[in-house]
Nucleic acid binder design. Structure first.
Length: 425
RNA sequence: GGAGGGAUGGCCGAGUGGCUUAAGGCGGCGGUCUUGAAAACCGCUGAAGCGCGAGCUUCCGUAGGUUCAAAUCCUACUCCCUCCGCCA
């Protein structure tokens, strides 16, 4: 959510910044609502001040056993006038709230303009795509033949876009989760949390998925619960409605959760394999920090995620999302893309974003600046560290051998009971 | 699921209709004292909205209601605690 005062005073700037995101907004109606609200508020508050003064007077008169009935009678009218004046206010405020909640974050000035994926500049590249002396197969063929991925059974149990992992496949998924959590907690200073996998409406509004993107979520029928689409939701909301001591910042948390995505609009994209599923595992990194530090924290958070790929010897590149690709709540995002031999290109495996004060304002995440300082909105960040299912895909494809087996990256072997290779069943 | 008890500022906690513009404490900040610190003492210290400003208004879990006036009374809901039941 953008700051009301800022929007009011910088309408043109806001409209211009959102045009950079290819989001057309017309704020003229909002301007009118804002004016009406302030006029109403001014007159109602004046009446309330009158009533408060009279109430005090009535209290005084009654204590002195004097007659207050005339004043009480007059206040009846004032109270009626207040009620009447207030009448339109909830409606106006609700409509303003709707507008504010529907406006995406403003892109950071460093974010390049662009129309689509092809306009995301590459920041850096690590590792070399492996060369193969045999025909490359994709993870579906490799995994099915090794009997570690079973898409047919996944579909039988749940439906399309679900997968069953078996044997060394299930073990690898679990091993990756442990490796990632260990690296982030022991080497990068994050505190591990294991949050609820369902969260309520208030939490989803806090991080920006609601009210706008309900169709992307699975809701538990008859309840106020949604399945989390990312640990970002429960973990960022750990500090919702709190005022944090400044010396506890930056607060760094990491969490494993399964992620559930309905993604109504995504049909037809990545229909094959484990790239795009209704359920997948992810280890998430979340930071709450001072505004001055958030851009530097974004750099280090991205580096923390990259570290996992380096450990696993998976070639990747980092791109900056251009204005058109930026997510709703983000001011700046780096995507980390891993090399997928079967597709001959890099595919997203992590998305690291600085949300500036956008989520903090919605979720009331604040800190006290200095011992007697002002209360200020914090900045929030998060990034995948990493998407586990896609990491399995990348390992199967990058480490595939001519005989159909898959070498296990050395860093992962201790987490898989010393297993060095997944051989044919 | 049943019965009871609760929800008040960063934290704890008093407060059953009008001198509550929320007592008191803790914590924090400033000061006195001290070589320095601690202790002691003194002072300051909730959040948000509106207004150029003096200032005004709102907020005591949430939403309604009663009243000239609500932290306080009424209704519904949410969450927490204790006990019982069920259960991994």
């Amino acid at each position: 959510m953008l700051d009301l005062k800022f929007v009011r005073e910088n309408m043109d700037l806001v409209e211009g910044a959102l045009r950079r995101r290819r989001t057309a907004v017309d704020l003229s109606g909002f301007e009118e609502l804002d004016r009406a609200r302030r006029e109403t508020l001014a007159s109602v508050e004046k009446l309330r001040a009158e009533r408060n003064a009279a109430s005090e007077e009535i209290g005084r008169l009654r204590r002195e056993n004097k007659d207050a009935s005339a004043l009480m009678e007059r206040m009846k009218e004032v109270s009626a006038a207040i009620r009447e004046g207030e009448e339109g206010l909830p409606g106006i405020e609700r409509r303003m709230e709707e507008v504010l909640l529907s406006l995406p974050n403003l892109p950071d000035p460093s974010v390049p303009d662009g129309q689509g994926e092809e306009d995301n500049p590459t920041v850096r590249t690590w590792g070399d795509p492996p060369a193969f002396s045999f025909p490359v197969r994709d993870h579906v063929d490799i995994g099915t033949e090794l009997d570690i991925l079973d898409f047919d059974r996944g579909a039988k149990i749940a439906g399309a876009r679900f997968c069953l992992l078996k044997g060394a496949g299930a073990l690898m998924e679990r091993a990756l989760i442990n490796l990632m959590l260990d690296v982030h907690t022991r080497e990068h200073g994050y505190t591990e949390v294991l949050p609820p996998f369902l969260a309520n409406t208030a939490s989803f509004i806090g991080t920006g998925q609601l009210p706008k993107f309900e169709e992307d979520l699975f809701r538990v029928a008859g309840t106020d619960y949604y399945l989390v689409p990312t640990a970002e939701v429960p973990v960022t909301n750990v500090v919702r409605d709190e005022i944090l001591p400044a010396d506890t910042l930056p607060r760094k948390m990491t969490a494993y959760t399964p992620c559930f995505r309905a993604e109504a609009g995504s049909h037809g994209k990545d229909v094959r394999g484990m790239i795009r599923q209704h359920q997948f595992n992810k280890v998430e990194l979340v930071k709450i920090c001072r505004p001055e530090e958030s851009m530097a924290e974004l750099e280090s958070l991205t580096a923390d995620a990259e570290k996992i790929l380096i450990r696993l010897s998976l070639p990747y590149r980092v791109v900056t999302l251009c204005t058109a690709e930026l997510g709703f709540s983000a001011a700046k995002t780096y995507d980390i893309e891993v090399w997928l031999p079967s597709q001959g290109r890099y595919r997203e495996i992590s998305s690291c974003s600085n949300f500036t004060d956008f989520q903090a304002r919605r979720a009331k995440i604040r800190f006290r600046d200095g011992a007697k300082g002002k209360v200020r909105l914090a900045h929030t960040l998060n990034g995948s560290g990493l998407a586990v299912g896609r990491t399995v895909v990348a390992i199967l494809e990058n480490f595939q051998q001519e005989d159909g087996s898959v070498l296990i990256p050395e860093a992962l072997r201790p987490y898989m009971g010393g297993m060095e290779r997944i051989g044919p069943a």
